[in-house]
Write a protein that binds this DNA or RNA. Structure first.
Lengths: 229, 229
DNA sequence: TGGCAGTTAGTTAGCATTTACTCACTTATG
DNA sequence: CATAAGTGAGTAAATGCTAACTAACTGCCA
């Protein structure tokens, strides 16, 4: 490995943190050995310890890096839409397709999902960090959309707190992802992922109180092109 | 430990499988040592190997035992209700309160939740087994309730497959449980668990297409007393 | 420009402990 | 006594981590 380029301390640190993510995500903290981590990072075991005092500190450094990772461009574009029923539809569809379809080749996303699950089995810290960072604005916008929708009479007047139902939508999406994750899915939904997204979106839209005719009006390919535009 | 009673091979096997469940659930396969398992089971490490050829075989024996565990009496009583909107409401409420509230002191249930989660990170096998065993009848009844509800005009005619939306309800419940699991919950819902159950139930009922006024009519303490009766 | 010194990236080889697992042995009981 | 339940004391390999070393880059002065 003498042909490998020499990096500055900081660059090496980052490259390790980056390389280690997939391994930890797949095998978990206890299931991963220093040897595997070093191999994945393309360095000697000893060098890991030059940069991180312990396996655990490396793990936490990696989690921090995940939490600080870049926000999704798509999501932040949606945040600039006006608060309306159609934006609500777009948001719900985005959340669900995001988890169910992922983005092809986005290995980081898959790893992050694993790490989020592991976090929930552990102390939940990563999930809390992620939410703190990127959920605040999203929550606000979602609630604003619900308000707007209610004002325009497209939302049933149901006793569900408008600041909470984003979470219910997220939960449907998250759990779908979880059950689709294993090599052979834990549930056989008997339909394609695209159809599943559409069905789950319908469920979520009705769940937040959207009236049936409004859902039918707004949940169409036309509105969803906003996403691709 | 010489005052401990001597057990027959089979009884010991079962006692080990039983004792080991909580440890594996909490720490995972890789995070648990034979020493811990032996200690929890109150026997020597060597005796474990008299009954199980390896750590892994013990793990799988334990998973099998979980999958074969007793079904819930409450759930099977519900299965005998007539297919109707009120039964639908009861079922949704049951699923959600089951995951969110658990039953106090039911340590087995908490362990099972962890194991299900770990299974999803692994091969999903346990989840599939559990569903195969206890979901089939439940699914059928749920779908029948939806049909009945549609026939009586209490369900919107929405394009969601009636055989799938049980899963959406389950997903909301499951994910709520996941996020409430860590010592400090991953999400601060800002309301009590009881209220959370009620809110999530509303969301799910509307999600499956129940009309607002029907939900309001059926989702009341009165109907839910069916559960306690 | 060349060469030397100090510093920092990186590795090799190993240490102390833990871990999964085994074997020879002991003890209780029908 | 014979059989089966149960254990103490290990073993070989793996694991997390470290010490002692080498190789490359940087700045400095002739």
């Amino acid at each position: 490995m003498s042909n490998a380029p020499r990096l500055t301390a900081e660059a090496r640190r980052e490259s390790i943190v980056e390389a280690v993510q997939d391994i930890f995500a797949e095998k978990g903290f206890d299931g991963t050995t220093i040897k595997e981590l070093a191999h994945a990072a393309g360095v000697s075991e000893a060098l890991l310890y030059k940069h991180f005092p312990s396996k655990e500190s490396l793990y936490h450094a990696m989690l921090d890096a995940c939490a600080k990772g870049p926000t999704f461009a798509e999501a932040s574009r949606i945040l600039e839409f006006e608060a309306s029923t159609s934006t609500l539809v777009v948001m719900v569809h985005f959340m669900i397709s995001h988890y169910v379809l992922g983005r092809p080749g986005d290995t980081h996303r898959a790893a992050l999902n694993s790490l989020l699950m592991r976090s929930l089995l552990d102390d939940g810290e990563l999930v809390r960090l992620m939410h703190k960072k990127l959920a605040a604005a999203w929550l606000k916008k979602f609630e604003a959309c619900l308000q707007a929708s209610a004002k325009s009479g497209e939302l049933n007047d149901v006793p569900i707190r408008k600041d909470i139902c984003v979470w219910f939508v997220q939960h449907v999406a998250f759990s779908l992802m979880l059950h689709l994750r294993p090599k052979v899915p834990a549930i056989n939904y008997k339909i394609s992922r695209e159809e599943l997204v559409s069905q789950a979106t319908w469920f979520a839209l009705l769940g937040v109180g959207l009236k049936e005719d409004a859902a039918r009006r707004y949940y169409s390919p036309k509105v969803l092109q906003l996403l691709a535009s």
